[in-house]
């Protein structure tokens, strides 16, 4: 009873196996093995910061020569060097890891609001309402566009109305930088600890009128920096992360507590 069943199943198996073997030879699709190798080296977040739909598309583009070998910011310099090896391209100059940092300290307690905004909870929509509800025209709007675009949930809106960026999670893709309509998020060297958290180009008096913690361009930090890493640009102090030693002197001298 069992024998005919075994035989017929075995025969069927042989026939289909033969067909599959034939098909795999005849209809084989040649895939460049480099694509898979490159994809294996990418961050795998599918963040889209490279400008392609996802990591697989980026890997294809690299192999086709449509994308640079170091186009994946989250994967970092090491991965870029390995990809360059696969592609037999020149190893790009290693860059330091970059992370997003918020350049505003104007939260709901320190920055003055000029009006109550009840509209669509979106930073871009809020700016259409008389240039935004906050009195400062350089500060964070606080409606969370950056948090919504972050592909790795490194940004969360804090209770004080400002986004909180977790730099350990940040992959430096820069999507939040592109999204922010006020440009208060910068991609900075991950080595830096202290940042001037204000972008107001106004003079001290106007800054004080709208925010109790904004940079008033007093230049105390510039004068006190032991390694001359700080200079003034458009009434805001700027720290050069290549020179900064993270000594923290500027944090101590800043009268507005803008540098944190």
């Amino acid at each position: 009873m069992i024998i005919p069943a075994v035989i017929s199943l075995a025969a069927l198996g042989l026939i289909f196996g033969g067909l599959l073997a034939f098909a795999s030879q005849k209809f084989a699709v040649e895939v460049d093995p480099r694509i898979e190798a490159v994809q294996g080296l990418l961050a795998g977040a599918n963040c889209g910061a490279c400008g392609f739909a996802g990591c697989a598309q980026f890997a294809e583009a690299v192999v086709d020569g449509r994308a640079p070998v170091n186009g994946c910011a989250p994967a970092g310099a090491q991965a870029a060097a390995k990809i360059a090896e696969i592609m037999r391209a020149e190893t790009p100059k290693a860059e330091d890891r970059k992370v997003a940092q918020l350049k505003c300290v104007g939260d709901c307690n320190t920055a003055r609001a000029k009006a109550v905004y009840d509209g669509v909870p979106d930073c871009k929509a809020a700016l259409m309402f008389g240039g935004g509800p906050s009195a400062c025209s350089f500060g964070c709007v606080g409606l969370g566009n950056c948090a919504r675009v972050c592909p790795v949930d490194a940004i969360a809106m804090g209770e004080n109305g400002l986004p909180k960026i977790d730099v350990t999670l940040c992959i430096g893709c820069g999507l939040c930088v592109k999204e922010c309509p006020r440009q208060v998020i910068d991609l900075v060297n991950a080595r830096g600890v202290h940042h001037v958290r204000c972008k107001s180009q106004e003079k001290g008096k106007q800054v004080r009128a709208v925010c109790s913690r904004g940079c008033i361009a007093c230049t105390l930090c510039v004068k006190n920096c032991p390694v001359n890493a700080i200079h003034m640009e458009n009434n805001v102090a700027v720290i050069d992360s290549n020179i900064c030693t993270n000594c923290g002197t500027c944090v101590e001298v800043c009268p507005q507590k803008t540098i944190v």
Partner: peptide, 10 residues
């Protein structure tokens, strides 16, 4: 309407 206005701007 507000969303459409945003879309027009973008």
């Amino acid at each position: 309407t507000q969303w459409i206005r945003m879309a027009k701007g973008e």
